[in-house]
Design a protein around this nucleic acid. Structure first.
Lengths: 375, 375
DNA sequence: TTGTATGCGTTATCAA
DNA sequence: TTGATAACGCATACAA
């Protein structure tokens, strides 16, 4: 690896001063055409690439945005590996595992892509760290490491301990995605989705289009703000249609497919099925589908099932799941666009953004879509 | 946002020189206990975080590894978005779409996590860019932007144009994941998976355990090296069991679920089904499953179906898919670990690593696993 | 063990 | 339009 050329090398080769080289690169129009061209050739010949460190140091900004993603549990059990060159394959029977959760991975991936996309379109780079799931002192270390290298950070809910976030907000432009630490909702930049409105719209549709009056609500964990807001939306939707929310039974499916399946099976056995089973996320809706299908019941003919999130599997299940899709890519884009604003205007009051969601009506409530003429 | 403190501030507050502060931070043991402590308090009080730029500049290394991911097509059509604060939800009928491809997203996500994991354990940061899918000159720009900021780069196959890669190899430590540009296999660092051995092992199992003699092979695109190696493995497995590979019909499913479904339907109509349908990836195997299930055929009783990749859906389909799982997380870890080696030893001959795969025997070839006693 | 002084590769401010 | 030169914030060789 040859020693890297610097501005000095380029300047010498082009017969100008380093200041001119720097200018030619940053604001080409401030340099005479001829000069510019001779510099460009020198750059080409030498394969010169400006040092990001030097540039950042001098310009007092790095052009990098940091992104903190939550860990996914499957990664905690790290198998060892070695670098070998022999071609091998192990073989074994792989039994079904219950309780594995796939949702997060997809979700974060899309947010990441949204961030990268927007960062790129703004001429910025993206630095990624995966926080929670390691010890708190490790996360602490990672965070400090990162904020030394970036102009601002984006933090996904629950990827970094709350107390750390609060101390960060004072030091560096920071935006929270999906949720703020408890109590911090008014004091920092936020980008979220319309959980409430999404669920509300969905419920209104069920009442209006399908004359549903009897519901069961399958809730997520009590400590999840998403879960809470979705339930509030559920209540609102009912109330708007004159149905008393208090009359609707709630079951706690903990956002988990197997749990929801079990609950649904109980429901079936007891003959307690409602007209519609509204679930706080897709995983649970899929679990409900599993149970109903196994019991020989038809969805939506016998029972309507709906989810929330819009994970990929909601689009490949049988029947496909009516759900509320979160605009995950745009969530990422909005996050970047928000930090950028914060970087430029450190003293603005907190920005708070709600991204609109899409209620996707599919076969699990509509029946055979082919029968419905396209819009 | 208060002006950020520097070493000078810390030094003054602690009553020492900046050199001592620097030492206390880098190699604490080279500083007397008392001094160290007074520096630590100063750091705490001021909320000092070292500047990454300055540190990189002085140390001549950034501690950052760059990662290039391929784009996924869905992101090309960018819907506009705006930052608003009103709670909204649109609602519409969502018809089934054919041909959507989900594989990549998951795959890259896992590789990314592997990279991050390993980078972190080595005290490095990760910078991510999404290459291909934008214009070549854009990618070119992104790449140069990145290599100015990192110590080495990891490039996933097909995320960056070949010619660019070749010019990069000379300038900066670079590792290719999953594949090298054509012709470059011997001249750069590589991390791959055992496509060949995986398929070979799978086929041997089918012959040995299930007495399969009649196969059909569902191939991917001709220009995919992965596809090629899997087919070679397929041939090897057959040959090892005395079956002539030439006698096996090949259909080109282009790695696509709908295509494979169509082909399988044709096969069913013509009554040409084999004992086992071996597919070069999971998507195609799922397509085959779709067709077979619709036709009322039973898998594996009537036909055995196998995939390759180990995508999540292979684990949730009915029946679950026997497949070959690529160690995606470890692929990422190996990639990072390889660039690091290259950074430390710029003049070593090219490193080439094959990661072992796992053949996962599931219901699509084994039948009901519950019936088989656990190991 | 600690301090002094220099260099790292840019950008930016002045002059020219 | 261009050139000298002083920051930028830290690491490190050398001295003390």
């Amino acid at each position: 690896m040859a020693k890297k050329p610097t501005v000095y090398d380029v300047a010498e080769q082009a017969g100008v001063s380093i200041a001119t080289v720097s200018r030619a690169l940053r604001k080409p129009e401030s340099v005479r055409q001829a000069t510019r061209e001779s510099i460009e050739t020198a750059v080409q010949q030498l394969g010169y690439v400006p040092s990001g460190s030097a540039r950042s140091l001098a310009a007092r900004k790095t052009g990098i945005i940091g992104l903190f993603l939550p860990n996914v549990d499957e990664l905690e059990t790290l198998s060892d590996f070695e670098l070998t060159d022999h071609d091998t394959a192990e073989i074994h029977v792989d039994r079904p595992v219950t309780g594995r959760i796939h949702r997060d991975s997809l979700y974060f991936d899309h947010v990441l892509r949204g961030c990268e996309l927007e960062a790129w379109s703004q001429g910025l780079s993206l630095m990624v760290s995966i926080g929670q799931g390691r010890g708190e002192s490790d996360v602490n270390q990672m965070v400090h490491d990162m904020i030394g290298k970036v102009d601002g950070v984006i933090i996904l809910a629950r990827s970094v301990p709350d107390r750390l976030i609060e101390s960060l907000v004072k030091r560096i432009p920071l935006v929270m995605v999906a949720d703020a630490p408890i109590g911090g909702e008014k004091s920092m930049d936020l980008v979220r989705v319309s959980n409430r409105k999404g669920m509300c719209t969905l419920v209104e549709h069920l009442v209006d289009a399908h004359q549903i009056r009897s519901f069961i609500y399958m809730a997520g964990p009590d400590d999840s703000p998403d879960n809470h807001k979705r339930y509030v939306g559920f209540q609102e939707g009912l109330a708007a249609r004159g149905i008393s929310p208090e009359s609707i039974p709630i079951y706690r499916g903990k956002f988990s497919r197997p749990t929801a399946k079990k609950i649904t099976q109980d429901l079936i056995e007891r003959g307690d099925l409602p007209q519609a089973l509204v679930c706080a996320n897709d995983q649970m809706a899929l679990g409900a589908l599993d149970a109903l299908t196994q019991a020989g019941l038809r969805v939506p003919d016998d029972v309507i099932v709906t989810g929330f999130d819009g994970i990929e599997e909601s689009d490949t299940s049988h029947p496909r799941l009516t759900t509320v899709r979160q605009p995950m890519v745009n969530l990422g884009r909005a996050a970047v666009s928000t930090v950028v604003k914060r970087i430029e205007h450190p003293d603005d009051p907190p920005y708070s953004t709600e991204m609109p969601v899409s209620v996707l009506l599919r076969e699990s409530c509509e029946g055979v879509l082919e029968a419905i003429p396209a819009a």
